[in-house]
């Protein structure tokens, strides 16, 4: 029994699920559900469809290189059953899974690092540029408490400016 990957979204296909299409050159396309199969029939490229693993890998949304992915690899040599090895593997699966999840979380945290500051800057800019939609400019002049306080910046060389004006 083998857990194959979906051709479109790269998710795992468990036994009894999905459909497979065999092209005349004997290439097999496996799909996890009808959603992926329909997208394939519409000739969509999985690299351009946002929700697929291929898109997320390509655009740096997910981890691409990690040693935990090495365990989940297609091996063509059959392994002889050994009770001890099977037990050890079952124990290791949990541990490896935990490590992978942690690394993915840290990858996400790294990716989202400067996002809050950027969002705040954009909001401040929006507020400054379009405050006149909320309050009329005349009202702002009458009541200075509505405007944002001006930040004073020290100018180091006032003489240079004067020369420019002349």
């Amino acid at each position: 029994m083998r857990l194959e990957k979906c051709w479109f979204c790269s998710s795992t296909i468990y036994p009894g699920h999905g459909i497979q299409f065999v092209r005349n050159d004997a290439k097999i396309f496996r799909f996890c559900r009808s959603k992926c199969h329909k997208n394939f029939k519409m000739k969509r490229n999985p690299r351009k469809v946002r929700w697929t693993k291929a898109y997320r890998r390509l655009h740096g949304k997910d981890m691409t290189q990690d040693s935990t992915f090495e365990f989940e690899r297609r091996r063509n040599r059959p392994e002889r059953y050994d009770r001890n090895v099977a037990q050890e593997t079952l124990k290791a699966i949990k541990k490896i899974d935990k490590i992978r999840v942690d690394r993915e979380a840290s990858h996400h945290a790294m990716r989202m690092k400067g996002k809050k500051a950027i969002e705040r800057q954009a909001a401040a800019k929006e507020l400054e540029q379009s405050i006149h939609l909320v309050k009329a400019p005349l009202a702002l002049q009458e009541d200075p408490s509505l405007t944002r306080p001006k930040i004073k910046v020290k100018v180091s060389q006032p003489q240079a400016e004067e020369q420019m004006e002349e």
């Binding site: 459909i19 497979q20 299409f21 065999v22």
Partner: peptide, 14 residues
């Protein structure tokens, strides 16, 4: 398409 023994399906080009 035709169902396989495990419940998945298979179909061909022609």
């Amino acid at each position: 398409q035709r169902g396989r023994c495990d419940g998945s399906e298979v179909k061909f080009d022609d």
